[in-house]
């Protein structure tokens, strides 16, 4: 059986909120290392990969592999009933029909309990190759969100060019063009404001801004976001969570520009 207790419902609420517009029905794969999710969007352009390590829960117990097929719209409805600060416990039997969610208020004696019916989801699981990326950029997640939103006002796509000079986000649209260039930057007092660019070779790729703006819904999960790029491979956008847990998005580049 599965029993996983989160100190704050907020974490799951934010994760689900960040991915629910991209993917609808997903398997939450539970085993003794934690709870994982991998799903592609309907058009097979983007892929979400979430890992909530067992260390992110206290306690965490999962004796055998259990796949919880959950509709994220349903999960959102139930999670809306949880206060951000509630303790959240997920429970399921070994061959479950439902997943049970319990929300406990730390301040009052209120206990809420919900069951969500599970779905049988036949999901294609993709192998993501280990990649030595040519460029890795760590930057404030709010900054990345702002750049994507600003450029989307002008264009559907953004080119991300990483060179010794820095990283340049550029777009061209009907009304004109725009670009934002960032250089490495260290803020001793506020390390969350750091921009770190690790480059082994110059990279230039073009991506759909609609997807990037969607990924940025995860910005509240982490002060920093990591962008990993190599020519002609999908972009990795990673939001690191506590205890080595993470929420990752992969986005296929536009080709033949």
């Amino acid at each position: 059986m599965l029993e996983a207790r989160l100190e704050q419902a907020n974490l799951l609420k934010k994760v689900v909120d960040a991915i629910k517009d991209l993917v609808q029905d997903c398997n939450f794969d539970c085993n003794d290392s934690g709870i994982a999710l991998q799903a592609m969007d309907n058009s097979h352009v983007a892929l979400v990969s979430m890992m909530l390590k067992s260390e992110s829960f206290s306690p965490f117990r999962c004796d055998r592999n259990i796949a919880l097929g959950i509709n994220l719209t349903s999960l959102t409805k139930v999670l809306r009933a949880a206060q951000n600060e509630d303790i959240l416990t997920l429970k399921a039997e070994d061959a479950p029909d439902v997943v049970n969610l319990v929300f406990e208020s730390a301040e009052s004696d209120r206990i809420s309990e919900y069951d969500i019916k599970l779905m049988d989801i036949d999901q294609e699981h993709l192998g993501i190759p280990e990649t030595e990326y040519a460029a890795t950029i760590s930057m404030p997640s709010a900054e990345f969100q702002r750049i994507c939103r600003d450029l989307m006002a002008l264009s559907e796509s953004v080119s991300i060019e990483c060179s010794k000079e820095g990283v340049k986000f550029a777009c061209q649209g009907d009304i004109g063009s725009g670009s934002v260039t960032l250089r490495s930057h260290t803020n001793v007092d506020k390390p969350e404001m750091n921009v770190e660019i690790d480059l082994t070779e110059p990279v230039s790729l073009t991506f759909s801004l609609k997807y990037l703006v969607g990924f940025c819904k995860a910005s509240s999960l982490s002060g920093q976001v990591k962008l990993c790029l190599s020519n002609e491979v999908p972009l990795l956008v990673e939001y690191a969570l506590a205890n080595n847990s993470y929420l990752r998005f992969y986005l296929a580049p536009k080709i033949g520009d």
Partner: peptide, 14 residues
Amino acid sequence: TASQGSITSFFGAP
């Protein structure tokens, strides 16, 4: 203009 690539053409079956 550029065409949108697909994730499945980069990431295959494990």
